[in-house]
Write a protein that binds this DNA or RNA. Structure first.
Length: 805
RNA sequence: GCAGGAGUGGCGGAAUGGCAGACGCAUCAGACUCAAAAUCUGACGUAGGUGACUAUGUGUGGGUUCAAGUCCCAUCUCCUGCACCA
């Protein structure tokens, strides 16, 4: 009776072994492979099976690379500053430093249960002063480069989190973190000039081996458009209003102009008759939240009483205010061509403004226009000297024509805005700036960094727009590094994204006191070859990281300008009916019990087996029995094979090569769920072959164990030892290779069809010629074949199809 | 509204244009057992037939092809992202 599979004993034994004998060692000769997980923030809830999946995927991939001869950079760390950690601390009534440390310890313990080969010597924590020293250093460098600046403006304000937010953190008018409605608040903010990098951030997407979806999301977020600015004069004045348009070809069709209510000139355009209405409209608009403004489908507006003059034809058009025009895009003012824009059309209809068609649709003017004709496709009409031109051509040429005539200029625009970088919260990196009345904002000298986050009693957000740090007068009051006079410290802190925008650089040189990362180590270990994580950071962390990396490249800190060569987004694990796992829904599945009952190896396999790694999957506990049974059967087959030690048969050799081929190709294409089913298939076949001689041959078994080692490391290590390799590291023996010739069958089964419908199967030599194959097929079909044979198709190794009438 | 992804048994899912449903879960039957669990063997899309078998079948409707889950056109549903960006 063969010894049964005991996951508890095996896993305990090997866990202890690996602690003493690390499997991933840098001998200085191996090439590096950097496989990175998006580092977690240390939440109090711990890990659920969904977090596990990402870590298992990255570990399997890492171990595969290790098996191929790479030295791995496979680190882990903690994104521990920021709102989630701080909000948790406030809820629990403890200091965030304390709760963060506790949560880190707890999650680290849970992560170790995965048996991933993280190199804990490389661990980083964004709240560690030795780490945030460099987060602050980057800010100082950006300040010196003119990329960090202050601006007073109405920003997105989360009344629940009591802090300002970046555009990227506002989702459908709500706070990305807590879901509260975002309002506007006028604050003096630190901004990062990410817009300086808009073109490079857009263009370099082409270099990246990333999911198309993420590239598209970033492209849309950057939102580059081409067009022209056109200057209109306000009638009877010498004041100008500049509008931005992507459709200068339709300039003759402009019948009115609309300004955002926040436009600097909005109030001034009012006349005595309209002043009351205009001021009321501006006030009402200022009171609306983002959510309201988005939900108001129906257009509203007010006529200012003033008119603008179209520089092209001197036409006099009314100037309106409406909140459908955004203040912070383009110039905050637009020319409106109702005939060729849906929004302008709707507005014109509602307020009875004339509509002039300037592009012929299907060669003619539309009589009773029911909707705008928005395509730039047709001949120009009602357009003076432009009449007869093709709209598509004019669209491209008009910006230059307008520029030459002095009516405006060719421009590009971006949806991307500068990054609101300050937070009115305690738990973040202090912004290393000192405000001096004489010298203005002065950066803390680099040699004085880190600027420590002071200990405080009261760390709750104030809600006033000031950070809790503002209360610590003896911290705030300081001297100017420049002139030595009295000065005050900046009291806002950085957003959570500050640390996560560059942490991956620090892993490879995490103890360096002289530099963010040494030149030598950066060149040797960076950039990241494979980055694995959820898709939720597509326009947040992934965009910010690219921006930071480009900046660090520009100042010569690193030698590459894209941080992540390849990106893989794993799908989410949800509870029943696709509902996101959360504590409040009560559908969180904890991995702890599953590890106890089935073992780490089983759970690792099942995490992959639930479905394609890139898609969301519903978790169903029952399925884990299947992989657990597989491991039991594999174990039983293996130990009895070791005992029987049979000579390899032709069948076994063939199976070995095919197994290597199948597992490798599936793994290479990241089809990890079918790798697991492949193991099951081949195990079933090995069990079948075992029946003849009490087992399968040693080499085939060894091959299977190596193939399995990245997926189920404990059982693989144990069986490798039992196969006579005591003291050897199964994880670095090398990935097995296959030979095409050894996989081939001499005789194959092939389907025989009549008119595309399978009617029989025949077995014939793999290299049989057409005549032989067709003859055999006809024989097998016998009386089923009737009528005239029109065509005989034979695809060797695939099919025989006889077309008969 | 725009863009992307997906629709295959009771369920999760598999199929370089070539025998649809691999692999697994659940279910049912049998073996072992005093019994249960575990394990092993088998059945398992639908309809008809005792049966070998026959017909039918990958959201819906067309098309290309000797051959379509796969390619093309149209259409419906669901999910994700963006959303008055001029």
């Amino acid at each position: 009776m063969a010894e049964a599979y005991n996951h508890k004993l095996i896993e305990k034994k090997w866990r202890a072994n690996w602690e003493k004998n690390p499997v991933n060692v840098d001998d200085g000769k191996k090439p590096k492979y950097y496989c990175l997980d998006m580092f977690p923030y240390p939440s109090g809830n711990g890990l659920h099976v969904g977090h596990w999946r990402g870590y298992v995927i990255s570990d399997v991939w890492s171990r595969y690379k290790m098996q191929q001869g790479y030295y791995l950079i496979h680190p882990m760390g903690w994104d521990a500053f920021g709102l989630p950690a701080e909000n948790y601390a406030i809820k629990m009534g403890v200091h965030p430093a304390k709760s963060t440390a506790e949560n880190v310890a707890n999650i680290k313990k849970q992560i170790n249960e995965i048996a991933a080969i993280y190199d804990w010597d490389r661990e980083v924590n964004t709240t560690d002063p030795e780490f945030y020293k460099w987060t602050q250093w980057i800010f100082v460098k950006m300040f010196k480069a003119g990329l960090a600046y202050q601006k007073e403006m109405p920003i997105n304000w989360c009344p629940s989190c009591k802090t300002g937010l970046a555009n990227e953190e506002v989702v459908n008018g709500r706070c990305e973190r807590c879901g509260a409605e975002v309002t506007k608040k006028n604050l003096n903010q630190w901004m990062l000039k990410i817009t300086n990098y808009a073109d490079r951030l857009l263009a370099d997407l082409d270099k990246l081996d990333w999911p198309e979806k993420v590239k598209k999301m970033q492209t849309d977020w950057i939102g580059k458009s081409y067009g022209a600015e056109v200057d209109f004069t306000v009638e009877n004045t010498d004041r100008k209003i500049t509008v931005y348009t992507t459709r200068p070809d339709t300039l003759y069709g402009a019948t009115f102009m609309v300004l955002a209510p926040e436009h600097a000139m909005a109030k001034d355009l009012a006349t005595d008759e309209t002043r009351a209405d205009v001021e009321k409209y501006i006030y009402d608009a200022s009171m609306k939240s983002n959510v309201d403004r988005l939900q108001d489908k129906e257009k509203t507006g007010v006529f200012t009483g003033s008119y603008a003059i179209n520089p092209l034809n001197q036409a006099k058009i009314p100037i309106w205010l409406s909140d459908y025009v955004l203040a912070d895009y383009g110039t905050g003012a637009i020319m409106c061509v109702p005939a060729h824009d849906d929004r302008d059309f709707e507005f014109a209809k509602k307020f009875h403004i004339p509509i002039i068609q300037v592009i012929a649709k299907d060669g003619k003017e539309i009589e009773d226009m029911k909707e705008a004709y928005t395509e730039a496709n047709g001949t120009m009409i009602n357009s003076g000297e432009w009449n007869g031109m093709e709209s598509a051509v004019l669209k491209k040429e008009a910006p230059l024509i307008i520029e030459k005539k002095g009516y405006g200029r060719k421009t590009t625009n971006y949806k991307l805005r500068d990054w609101v970088f300050s937070r009115q919260r305690y738990w973040g990196e202090p912004i290393p700036i000192v405000h001096c009345e004489k010298c203005g904002p002065v950066p803390v000298p680099e040699e004085e960094l880190p600027l420590l986050l002071p200990e405080v009693e009261k760390y709750q957000p104030t809600g006033t727009g000031e950070s809790p740090l503002a209360d610590i007068t003896d911290w705030v009051n300081t001297t100017c590094p420049c002139c030595g006079g009295p000065a005050k410290r900046e009291t806002n802190t950085m957003p959570q994204w500050a640390g996560s925008s560059w942490y991956f650089l620090r892993y490879v040189d995490n103890k360096n006191k002289e530099a963010l990362v040494s030149k030598e180590k950066a060149d040797k270990y960076l950039p990241v070859d494979m980055y694995i994580g959820g898709v939720e950071h597509a326009v947040l962390h992934l965009l910010y990281s690219r921006f930071y990396t480009k900046f660090l490249y520009d100042i010569g800190a690193v030698d590459f300008d894209e941080p992540f060569v390849k990106l893989f987004n794993q799908g989410m694990i949800t509870g029943k009916n696709g509902i996101k796992m959360s504590k409040s829904k009560g559908n969180v599945v904890s991995p702890d019990d599953l590890v106890r009952d089935y073992g780490c190896d089983s759970l690792r396999l099942y995490e992959l087996f639930v479905g394609p790694p890139e898609l969301d999957s519903e978790w169903d506990d029952r399925g884990i029995d299947g992989v657990y049974r597989f491991l039991n059967r594999f174990w039983k087959m293996a130990v009895s094979s070791i005992e029987a030690n049979p000579q390899p048969t032709k069948e076994m050799i063939k199976l070995r090569h095919r197994m290597v081929y199948d597992i490798t190709t599936r793994l290479e294409s990241f089809s990890l769920n079918t790798v697991v089913s492949g193991f099951m298939e081949y195990n079933n076949k090995m069990i079948e072959l075992s029946k003849q001689q009490g087992g399968i041959d040693k080499e085939t078994l060894e091959t299977a164990v190596i193939l399995l080692s990245p997926f189920a490391p404990h059982i693989a290590a144990e069986l490798w030892e039992r196969l006579g390799h005591e003291g050897e590291n199964v994880f670095t023996v090398g990935w097995p290779e296959y030979e095409e010739d050894a996989m081939k069958d001499d005789e194959i089964e092939i389907a025989v069809q009549i008119n595309g419908k399978t009617k029989a199967t025949v077995s014939l030599a793999a290299d049989a010629d057409k005549d032989t194959a067709v003859a055999k097929a006809k024989e097998a079909l016998g009386s089923k074949l009737s009528g005239n044979i029109v065509k005989e198709i034979y695809v060797p190794g695939r099919i025989i199809n006889i077309v008969a009438k």
